[in-house]
Design a binder for these strands. Structure first.
Lengths: 117, 117
DNA sequence: CAGTATCCAAAAGGATACTG
DNA sequence: CAGTATCCTTTTGGATACTG
């Protein structure tokens, strides 16, 4: 998919604003990656082991997308060997509440998860 | 993508419950389709014209996925010519609030929409 | 009318080897 | 260590013709 066809009216446009977030959040590892950073900055390798099964390429993609949206900050330390840390921005933390509401809704309504556990 | 690897701990599992919703909601036409049904039941053809540009195959896919999740009800009327109506369930209406919260968050934080006009 | 069937393109995800 | 490069599979979306 490339672009959403959002040009019909305000309601649709507003829905699309949120859809853009959903686009990112719904990607395979995004929510898990955010979860893995919740307790503080994480190095690439740490994320890689916490997100068991993710390939380095996909982890990079996931982190770049989060970075592009301003949800994660990437910090490179001039050390040898290289050290890079990823941390959540206040922006993504402020999303916790609406996301939590959505999660609660999903649980309360027993939306059958095809994924969890 | 097929399955999410959610089996690490409760926090991850909970996140995945919500992820399952995100999976559906983030699909190309889902949010628009829901929007198109907000004022009441819609026939296949009505949806098709309201969702300008959607192909019949994709519309069917979109509606089936919503049906599978219990977000939409499909009713077939024994008439000639055939009449089929799709309507939102109370379940999806109850998601309006958390989704609205997410939308508000996205707007307040100027998450750059790559999609909305 | 309300789809299904077919074929195709693009995007996302993934395994693995290699590098500054 | 923190990625990139390469190649491949799966998923999603799409155009179009056809059918009960």
């Amino acid at each position: 998919m490339k672009k959403s066809p959002c040009k019909r009216n305000d309601a649709y446009a507003a829905m699309c604003t949120c859809r853009d977030m959903l686009d990112v959040l719904a990607q395979r590892w995004t929510a898990l990656a955010i979860g893995a950073m919740e307790e503080g900055p994480q190095r690439f390798g740490q994320l890689r082991s916490r997100l068991e099964g993710i390939s380095p390429k996909v982890l990079t993609q996931t982190l770049r997308r989060l970075e592009d949206k301003g949800l994660v900050i990437r910090t490179v330390y001039a050390e040898v060997p290289a050290r890079v840390e990823y941390e959540l921005t206040p922006l993504v933390r402020s999303a916790a509440e609406p996301l939590s509401a959505l999660r609660t809704w999903a649980e309360m309504n027993s939306v059958r998860p095809s994924t969890s556990v």
